[in-house]
Design a protein around this nucleic acid. Sequence first.
RNA 1: GGAGAGAUGUCCGAGUGGUCGAAGGAGACGGACUCGAAAUCCGUUGUACCGCUUGCGGUACCGAGGGUUCGAAUCCCUCUCUCUCCGCCA
Length: 426
Amino acid sequence: MIDLRELKERKSEILANIKARNMKINLDEIIELQEHRSTLLQQTEALRANRNENAAKMKGKLTNEERAVLIEEGKALKEEIAVLESELRAVEDEYLRLGRTIPNYAHPDAPLGTDESDYAILRHVGSPPLFSFTPKDHVVLGEELDLIDFDTATRVSGPKFYYLKREAVVLQMALERYALDITLKRGFTPFITPDIAREEILLGIGFNPRGEESNIYTIEGMDACLVGTAEITLGGYYAGQVLDKKDLPIKMTGLSHCFRREAGAAGQYSKGLYRVHQFSKLELFVYCLPEDSEQHHRELLAIEEEIFSGLGIAYRVVDTCTGDLGAPAYRKFDIEAWMPGRGENGEYGEVTSTSNCTDYQARALSIRYKDDDGKNHHVHMLNGTAIALSRAIVAVLENYQNEDGSITIPPALVPYTGFDTIQPRN
RNA sequence: GGAGAGAUGUCCGAGUGGUCGAAGGAGACGGACUCGAAAUCCGUUGUACCGCUUGCGGUACCGAGGGUUCGAAUCCCUCUCUCUCCGCCA
């Protein structure tokens, strides 16, 4: 969440940002709640001061009569306080609930725009492969080579699930380890994280665990959800803590399953492995000083690029427009890899995303560091995809297919797979 | 899953209704002593919010939430977590 104390002084800025993000929020209502809360809080505290003063008078020896008078006064105060406190709680809950919906400020250089087409393409790296034949998409390749089984998964688990088989299993693990090694080289501490997180953590990270539009599976009877990304568990790792300044930056790389409901997501762009209910992902996460977050954001992007360019797959880097930023993100870069099987003649498809969420999540989760002046400040928090295994497999299979139906393993992966080709089945 | 014990400040630890934001010790910081250090002595040392703003005043917080009371770290209820023993288990 943003710092709600700045609501009034930065009002026009906040309004402009809400508009740029194509959101609808009634800011005046929140400001009214804030003022109401402030009034109630001051009244409540004044009454509590009276109560404490009254109680203090009764410490010494008193006649029964004197005591009786004070007790009566105390009883009256108690009732007044109870009424105000319940009103205060109601107003405060609503104030915070609505206040949390205000999005983070956006980076001044983030492209303005309300939909996906307003992004800025920062650069293209590599060139899409030229095929002397009509390339297949990964669904066809996965079936012909008996690498991916969607049909059985649909019967056993439901639509948008899949079994990986044979070389695809080794390929996934190879990609995992390949990407992990790159992050380790960069000084990230590796984690395998829980796949379930408490709702309060989800909320703090900026996910909405409930409701029709939520992409999150909640767990019946528990105050918890299946995670959609390890961003949640890595970002929740230090919730409520005051970190030592000398320990920053904290750089983590975490492997988890990712579960997404993807309600209503259908169509050609979501076929096959591209959009599924469960996949595995290696996620990068950084906690750092505010003044360092832009530099760390660039590093996260550089790591993502190193991972994809190392695979020899063409990609472009996109600076996401304001309308397409998640509420916590101050700025977001995506990598879109070339996928020959996507669309009519191949298209770029999103494979990674890195966001600088500044202090937005840290404030909601209360993650701070003690500065040299002895004061506590919120850290900046950033996340990025090292590799989303399902989409990486799409990219590898489609880009490295051969006319005879075989798949060449990208050279960087061969040390991890132990084979250099997936041969066609007879 | 069963039985028992516990949760207090940075840490250890005292505290069974008002004199407790909390004894005592450790640590850290400042100062004295010293050529310097150790030892010793003196002082300071939680967080959040609110109000006037060099500073001061107020409120809240003793695992969490509720309750009793004029008044709760202290009494009652619920929950969570930790530890020990038993059972089960990858």
